[in-house]
Design a protein around this nucleic acid. Structure first.
Lengths: 222, 222
DNA sequence: ACAGTCCTCCATAGATCCGTGGAAAAGTGT
DNA sequence: ACACTTTTCCACGGATCTATGGAGGACTGT
């Protein structure tokens, strides 16, 4: 009727995957990896971690099977082990947001007031084809190269102030970044508005775009 | 450009939900709760935990917002906080099963060899309507009452040997229990086969049935 | 071979988590 | 009020997790 020891072993094995999701830094790493593969020290810098700490967290994720690695010379690139991992991460965030009051609070404190208009990706796809809007990707260039919305222009938010002239003057701009919790698009929309441009924010980012199985362009920097 | 302290706080808040999933006993409790609400000591007994330990784990789950409570006299009933929680649990298990070799191994060790035939719920729905098969629910009665497949007969696996006469002789029997990792249906199919009955196992259980938004009957013990 | 780069492994100290028992809280029935 | 049931709270020892710095491994280029 089901050996209790084996039953415990099964749940314990499942808990290994849960443990991988039980640390804020590891979730941050997963969030970064959802944008594309990266080397250990790129991840460490992006997440503000010591190199050895980042390495240890990545080992934990790898042991749980959530990430995979690829060696290139002396460098090791980590990536998500699959589509389903991004899905799990996204669902975790959604559940946390719905059932835990602290999450929306922390989200708002981090992203700032969501005063700007939002659009969904369904709306955007039609407008892009009609040429009514420009889609702007404000993530770091390496993430853009690893995959972006077809037709999107890349201007990392750090360079946006000086490169604002590259954007057409009288066209609406739709900004996106990593996902619905990513601060870059919020900042970019505020900056564009300060310069008198009409800017909207896509209500989610590349993570959700990929999960919806929409087309993705890789490489190709204009 | 995104205060690192606030960013860390956001990921830390998400990690609270992850932590709730990082312990085998808590996952077992969630699995039980996916079948319907239960009191603390019913859960403690079912999971083989001390009462205070079970209570502490349930507090953790509650703080992460994954479960909710209802008071009835001196007794407190816990239940999943929503559909999405069951979904998260199911996805966690799926991801763990795909990306972590130890999980299928532990699963097989626990459930026993999957020698019996399986059927999907799509196949079953048609056959039930045609009256070609009997659907048998082998979970404890309280779980049957909390929700079962329409038309299913309830015989808990513990009583199956003595009550086998209640099942029609020349009809195929489709057995199901909690979910695809539940041992009860495996045991029941073996027992029925030993008694010369034609028995199949539904390849998943009540959890997946609910997630697929299929109709559920509550109460109504024949 | 050798120096240099990038990453992993190891040891350590501090923090957090887990299971256990005893006491306290909340509610019911007499 | 009092006895009784059910659950939560608290304190404590043992186990596990996390960050850090130093040593060691893997690979490249000269």
């Amino acid at each position: 009727m089901g050996d209790p020891t084996r039953r415990a072993a099964l749940y314990e094995a499942l808990a290994t995957t849960g443990k991988a999701l039980s640390n804020g830094k590891r979730l941050e790493l997963l969030d970064l990896l959802a944008q594309g593969e990266r080397s250990v020290d790129a991840l460490a810098k992006a997440a503000g971690l010591g190199l050895t700490t980042a390495s240890a967290h990545l080992q934990t994720l790898k042991q749980a099977g959530l990430v995979a690695t690829r060696r290139e010379g002396t460098r090791i690139h980590y990536r998500l082990a699959g589509h389903d991992v991004a899905q799990l991460f996204a669902l975790l965030r959604e559940v946390a947001g719905v059932h835990q009051a602290a999450v929306p609070a922390a989200r708002d404190a981090y992203l700032g007031a969501a005063d700007a208009e939002e659009v969904t990706h369904e709306e955007v796809r039609a407008q892009v084809e009609a040429g009514d809007v420009v889609v702007l990707d404000v993530r770091p260039v390496e993430e853009y190269l690893a995959g972006h919305i077809p037709g999107a222009v890349s201007i990392p938010v750090a360079e946006l102030a000086e490169r604002i002239g590259e954007l057409p003057e009288d066209t609406e701009i739709v900004v996106y970044c990593r996902d619905s919790y990513c601060v870059l698009a919020y900042d970019a929309v505020r900056l564009l508005a300060d310069h008198g441009r009409r800017a909207l924010r896509l209500n989610d980012g590349m993570l959700e775009w990929r999960l919806a199985d929409l087309p993705v362009t890789t490489g190709e920097l204009a």
